[in-house]
Design a protein around this nucleic acid. Structure first.
Lengths: 114, 114
DNA sequence: CAGTATCCTCTAAGATACTG
DNA sequence: CAGTATCTTAGAGGATACTG
């Protein structure tokens, strides 16, 4: 999870914005959630969808999402290992938020992503 | 502006999400935008609303928002200096996005901001 | 297959002091 | 009033190698 913001002073109305951003910030979290909206995925399925992410980073981002109770990590006790990642109810409730971000980007970021 | 993400590979559907996050990430940007939705504000008016932000940081965040064409910086050539910050049309179009973040936070972050 | 373990870099963010 | 200029630090993110 990114650093915690504004923790030590009276919370103004903008705080829930920051709090929510804290959960979905993290370089790959938005994309991970986006792909999990579609379907449950295994670790390596996620890896294949983001060729540039390192194993370490993918693990880290997934652990943070799990810690924030946005995704569920299900381990099957088999060999070879099998781990599935899916959205929790809380995670699924983020869909409109992610979509709002996506829609804005689709409209206003065309040829502006640098 | 935070680092640029995913720039060197084929953009999957999650990218506009990241692009948008890049613009509103930054520890104080969400809050700054939130306050500018209400009304145009001067530099020190913004400062007073966030007692914990340093001058340097406020300036930095404002400059980035301006560079991304989300806010407009209007300098009045008077002494003492007077500078007003207001939303651009592009910035105002972010309101539903920020509100989506805020609403989610209000609902799901109660007593969970840590 | 799904991870850890190390080591490293870079920069966002903060503290503090000064100024046209 | 609305900023710069320096200096510092924490930790996000990355590269690479190894493993139950």
């Amino acid at each position: 999870m990114p650093r915690i913001r504004h923790q030590n002073f009276e919370c103004n109305a903008g705080c829930p914005v920051e709090g929510t951003l804290n959960l979905i910030d993290g370089k790959w979290k938005g994309v991970i959630l986006y792909h999990l909206f579609e379907k449950t995925l295994r670790f390596n399925e996620l890896r294949r969808r983001f060729p540039d992410i390192t194993q370490r980073m993918l693990t880290k981002q997934l652990r943070e999402l799990e810690k924030n109770e946005l995704i569920i990590r299900k381990v099957y006790p088999v060999i070879p290992p099998k781990v599935e990642y899916s959205l929790s109810e809380r995670g699924r409730s983020l869909e409109p938020v992610i979509m709002a971000l996506k829609n804005w980007g689709d409209t206003y970021l065309v040829d502006k992503l640098e």
